Amino acid sequence: MSLKKYLAYITVVETGSLTKAAEKLNYTQPNISQMINSLEEEYGFPLLLRQKNGVKPTKNGLAVLHGMREIQRGYKNLSETVNGINGLETGKIRIGAYTSITTNWLPNILKEFKRQYPFIEIQVYEGNASELDHWLEEDQIDFGIGTVHNHKWEFQALFEDPIMVIMNAQHELVKRDFISLEAIESVEFILPYSDSLFEVHNIFKKAQINPNVAYQIRGDETIISMVRSNLGISLLPKLLLRRCSTDIAIKPLKTQVFRQIGVLLNTKRGAQTPSVNKMVHFIHQWTRKNN
């Protein structure tokens, strides 16, 4: 059946490896190779470029990839609809989300959701803003939970997450009730990369402030560790700081700034499957109840 071949090819492209695709789909590597070869014979052109470090799609392979994904999505939609009519809620959901979401929100959301829909399979991908963009573009996730920083995706707002100043409990600014951006300029600062927290960069850009950057770090936990060691202060979303120990002081900015957290959807793909719609609706209900 071509659907199996399409899924094999899609998975090979996503993983960049015939072996990894076989492991993910519970096939042998020769099985995957045979399905790809069968598609190439049927279409009359190569789909993959074999390289030393894996495989990648040819130009023609990329051209047919979107159509294969549309067929797979249509089949999933049909299967879930039929199962729903027969009283069985099934499906597969792929969620991409920021670290702050996966560590603080998703465990409780998934626990409650699975209680209601035990036969719906869920995959979670943890990433930053750039990675969510890529996964949505390449159809590797059904939706993301993050912040809006472009107009490529449909954005459904969930809640506002304040940006906070964090510092070692012995830092010279720790006695202040709130921290101004001008005060931040006067001390060593640990700056997140823009692909992780573009909101922090926007704060300084709008205020025309040049922080005294001692370190630039990608990774929220690394930033918190460096602040704990008194290597500088930083700005991070409040949601990330729920589990910080007492040796980290958390202070509000003098002028509060928020990042808007929401659901990101690629509307170019058309209608979502019933299971994805259920999950998105459930997340909206959960956040209204818990924030």
Results as ranks from 00 to 15, higher is better:
246 T>S: 15
91 G>P: 10
180 S>F: 05
86 N>A: 12
282 F>E: 07
54 G>H: 03
114 K>A: 14
102 T>S: 12
95 I>R: 02
276 V>W: 05
117 Y>G: 09
15 T>P: 08
190 I>G: 02
160 E>C: 12
283 I>Y: 03
280 V>R: 12
132 L>A: 00
60 N>C: 05
250 I>H: 06
187 V>H: 00
40 E>Y: 12
54 G>D: 06
168 N>S: 09
108 N>P: 06
4 K>F: 12
188 E>C: 04
90 T>Q: 01
167 M>D: 02
61 G>R: 07
61 G>N: 09
261 I>L: 05
245 S>F: 00
76 K>L: 01
210 N>D: 14
290 N>V: 11
234 S>V: 09
7 L>N: 11
184 I>F: 09
158 L>E: 02
168 N>I: 03
29 Q>E: 06
256 Q>F: 03
224 I>R: 06
285 Q>E: 05
133 D>Y: 01
48 L>I: 07
147 T>E: 07
169 A>G: 04
116 Q>N: 14
261 I>H: 08
197 L>G: 11
121 E>D: 11
166 I>F: 04
135 W>I: 08
39 L>D: 08
72 Q>W: 06
281 H>G: 12
19 T>Q: 14
248 I>V: 08
164 M>C: 08
174 V>D: 11
100 S>H: 04
1 M>W: 05
142 D>H: 05
75 Y>P: 02
152 K>E: 06
97 A>L: 10
281 H>N: 13
169 A>M: 14
270 G>Q: 03
193 Y>L: 11
29 Q>N: 06
70 E>A: 03
123 Q>V: 11
234 S>L: 12
222 T>P: 04
40 E>D: 02
46 P>M: 01
62 L>H: 04
69 R>N: 06
74 G>S: 06
162 P>I: 13
220 D>R: 14
133 D>Q: 11
271 A>I: 03
177 D>Y: 12
236 L>N: 03
219 G>Q: 04
82 V>C: 11
288 R>C: 13
193 Y>G: 12
89 E>P: 09
116 Q>A: 14
122 I>M: 01
144 G>I: 03
98 Y>H: 15
239 L>P: 00
291 N>P: 03
39 L>P: 06
215 Y>N: 04
158 L>P: 04
83 N>C: 01
149 H>M: 04
113 F>P: 10
226 M>Q: 05
55 V>T: 01
207 A>I: 09
188 E>P: 08
267 T>D: 08
236 L>C: 05
95 I>G: 12
270 G>K: 06
49 L>K: 15
38 S>N: 08
196 S>N: 07
84 G>D: 00
99 T>G: 14
194 S>R: 13
176 R>K: 15
205 K>R: 14
202 N>V: 14
141 I>P: 09
146 G>P: 05
